[in-house]
């Protein structure tokens, strides 16, 4: 394990734990500002969208919205449709993979 990997793990562990144990202790004694509580539900959505969007819409660094070329975007759309329909975590993953492989197979055949 390199020093950088070790620093990464220790830093992420610290940041994660700070949001859990100490928070549970502090919140039993402290009032959380209303605006913080109102802003928190937006955080996971924004983080995950910001990580996912460039990977699916610009897989080769340049924006590619052509469904014939961009299997990543199609896979993401498939996963999103299934995620809206079924609330479990596994079905959208399977749908995304299925669309990606199907696109790959069609492109390979043609």
């Amino acid at each position: 394990m390199t020093a950088q990997t070790l620093a990464l793990i220790i830093g992420c562990s610290f940041v994660t734990y700070a949001m859990r144990g100490p928070a549970m202790l502090i919140f039993s004694r402290l009032q959380v500002p209303l605006f913080v509580r109102q802003a928190l539900p937006f955080v996971p959505i924004c983080v995950l969208v910001a990580i996912t969007a460039p990977a699916l819409l610009a897989p080769e660094r340049s924006l590619d919205l052509n469904p014939l070329n961009n299997a990543w975007m199609l896979a993401g759309l498939g996963a999103a449709v299934v995620a809206a329909w079924r609330k479990d975590l596994v079905s959208p993953v399977l749908a995304g993979l299925a669309v990606f492989w199907l696109h790959h197979a069609i492109v390979t055949m043609s």
Partner: peptide, 14 residues
């Protein structure tokens, strides 16, 4: 694709 689909599975219901 599985990883990004997992992210989608987490944020779409939100």
């Amino acid at each position: 694709v599985a990883i990004y689909s997992a992210y989608i599975a987490i944020f779409v219901p939100l």
